[in-house]
């Protein structure tokens, strides 16, 4: 996995199913919901995923649990630990993804790199593609380490989504955008996933900078859970990812659909 951050990637398909689904139309804000595969059980995560898919979201992110989730806050960490305790595996998460993908809403897998390496990245790419997955996000795989894994994902027609953070230097943003396909993921906060009351004031400048370098849809994630957040994001990004708030609902035996419907009201 030698660094090739500077390599031009002009041949990337821009108009993937994922990109089309997340591109804002007429100024609306698309919503992406996150669930953890196997939380609280494999069967229930498929049920919840299907219900969310029918609730008006543009895409669904499905997390593959990991023992050491460096980018996640306590809510998603706990969900992952519970999923692992109940026997969730990479193969099991691919089954969950396949079950949810049947609903027709694009499915994006969110996974740390080590489960992918252990599973065999080529096998992972082929099986994810077969499961109907549209794209993959690997939060501990910065562009410097992206190859060869992201190449294998691309070969299997999977989008590889890279992240821009508030700490990302301006000179990296263009390179990250050129590596990304499907969409570009903007991390709104300097920190880990988890609900925040307020989003940082400076985030719209980051969104504008990212938009300069890509025609892909731009999604904002981390900390997003309220109608006010939707209003603050609308017009600046194409989509918002809601994770911990939904996982928290699932923790309380809910499915997050009511929350999604409420948030969607503030998206148009």
């Amino acid at each position: 996995m030698v660094a090739d951050a500077g390599r031009a990637q002009g041949a990337l398909p821009i108009k993937t199913k994922l990109a089309n689904a997340l591109k804002s139309k007429g100024g609306d804000l698309k919503l992406v919901a996150y669930i953890m595969a196997g939380h609280p059980s494999a069967k229930r995560s498929i049920d919840v995923g299907k219900r969310l898919a029918a609730s008006g979201i543009a895409a669904i992110e499905i997390g593959i649990p990991h023992s050491d989730p460096l980018a996640d806050g306590p809510v998603i960490q706990r969900a992952g630990q519970a999923a692992l305790q109940h026997g969730m595996t990479v193969a099991g998460a691919l089954e969950v993804a396949a079950g949810v993908a049947k609903e027709g809403v694009p499915v994006v897998l969110m996974t740390y790199i080590n489960p992918v390496l252990a599973y065999d990245p080529r096998k992972f790419a082929a099986e994810a593609s077969q499961a109907g997955v549209a794209g993959v996000i690997v939060p501990d795989l910065p562009i410097e380490e992206a190859e060869p894994v992201s190449g294998w994902l691309r070969s299997a027609s999977l989008d590889t989504v890279f992240m821009v953070a508030p700490t990302t230097q301006p000179d990296r943003i263009a390179t990250i955008c050129s590596h990304s396909s499907g969409f570009v993921y903007c991390v709104t906060v300097t920190g880990i996933t988890g609900v925040r009351k307020d989003l940082p004031a400076g985030m719209t400048e980051m969104f504008a900078e990212v938009k300069k370098h890509t025609s892909l849809p731009v999604a904002a994630g981390f900390g997003i859970s309220r109608q006010e957040h939707m209003k603050a994001l609308r017009g600046h990004v194409d989509a918002a990812v809601v994770g911990s708030a939904i996982v928290d609902e699932i923790d309380r035996a809910g499915d997050g659909v009511a929350l999604v419907r409420e948030l969607l009201k503030a998206c148009r």
Binding site: E144, M163, V187
Partner: peptide, 19 residues
């Protein structure tokens, strides 16, 4: 490139890359 042979690297969230 931050590696001892095949080993090492920087498998961290983007937030840490500038640091």
């Amino acid at each position: 490139d931050g590696r001892f042979g095949a080993f090492g690297g920087q498998y961290v969230p983007e937030t840490l890359m500038s640091a």
